[in-house]
Simulated assay, not measured.
Amino acid sequence: MAQTVGRNVAAPLLFLNLLMYAIALGFASWCTNRYINGQTNHPSLGGNGATGLFLTFAILASVVGIVSKLAGGTHVRAWRSDSLAAAGSASLIAWAITALAFGLACKEINVGGHRGWRLRVVEAFIIILTFTQFLYVLLLHAGMFSSKYGPGYRDRDYGIGAGTGEPIHKGGAVPVAGTRV
């Protein structure tokens, strides 16, 4: 199958999102460890009332995002409608959780107070990932509009060559040759 426009754009975006989710997971894990230990006076952490919830959702969004990129990698490699189901649903769930973390990041920024550089890095990555993940979801589903942009939802050649080419009887009992029914 020839490469399409959607595949050529989705593959680098998938890799970029995978790296960004991994970096966000690392920083969010470090910040959560310090936050649980009660070291909010650490110069790299700080925080306010929204920090605990934000870090929880940032870790959740990062883990689900990384797992969705594994399904996305399989889909980009195969680029068929049957692999699109797993990649599309996983990326949509990852985007929804990232959007929740985005809302908490906005709330944390709005509340204010001292926030260390590592916490601000997590906020920035989650904000950027919200938009890049949404773009990735759109690229995966662009095949609805034209098969030029994706594998399409109506592959006419799906299953061709799998059987003998004979029509399959879809009724009740199959009559045996030479007998009357």
Rank of each mutant, 00 (worst) to 15 (best):
A105L: 03
F131L: 14
F145Q: 07
G46S: 06
N8H: 08
T51D: 06
F27E: 01
G88H: 04
T56Q: 06
T164H: 02
K170H: 12
L25T: 06
G88I: 02
G161F: 03
H114F: 15
N110T: 06
D157A: 14
Y158W: 12
I97T: 11
Y21W: 08
I168S: 07
R7V: 03
W95C: 01
A124G: 15
A24D: 09
A61M: 03
M1D: 07
H42P: 00
L13H: 05
I93F: 15
R156F: 04
A10G: 08
F134N: 00
S147A: 14
I127S: 04
A2L: 10
C106R: 10
K69G: 06
Y136K: 02
L18W: 13
N8A: 10
A96V: 11
P167T: 07
I23Y: 13
V174L: 15
L84Y: 03
N41T: 12
Y21H: 14
A10T: 12
V5S: 09
I36L: 14
T98I: 06
N48S: 09
A61Y: 08
Q39F: 11
L138C: 13
F27V: 11
T132N: 07
L140T: 01
V137A: 08
A87D: 06
T164A: 05
K107G: 04
E108P: 02
A99N: 05
A78E: 14
G47Y: 08
P12M: 02
M20D: 09
L45W: 03
G112M: 09
A101C: 09
A87S: 15
G161P: 02
G88N: 11
E108A: 15
L18A: 15
G143F: 05
A87E: 00
Y35W: 15
G152I: 06
E108M: 15
G172Y: 05
A99K: 00
F145N: 07
Y35S: 08
L140M: 13
L60K: 00
F145Y: 13
I128K: 03
G171K: 09
T32N: 11
G72L: 04
G172R: 13
I66Y: 02
C106P: 00
S62T: 07
R154G: 01
G72V: 07
W30S: 11
G38M: 09
G103R: 04
E166S: 08
A2G: 04
L53V: 00
V121W: 01
N33E: 11
T51F: 04
F134Y: 11
L119P: 02
I23F: 15
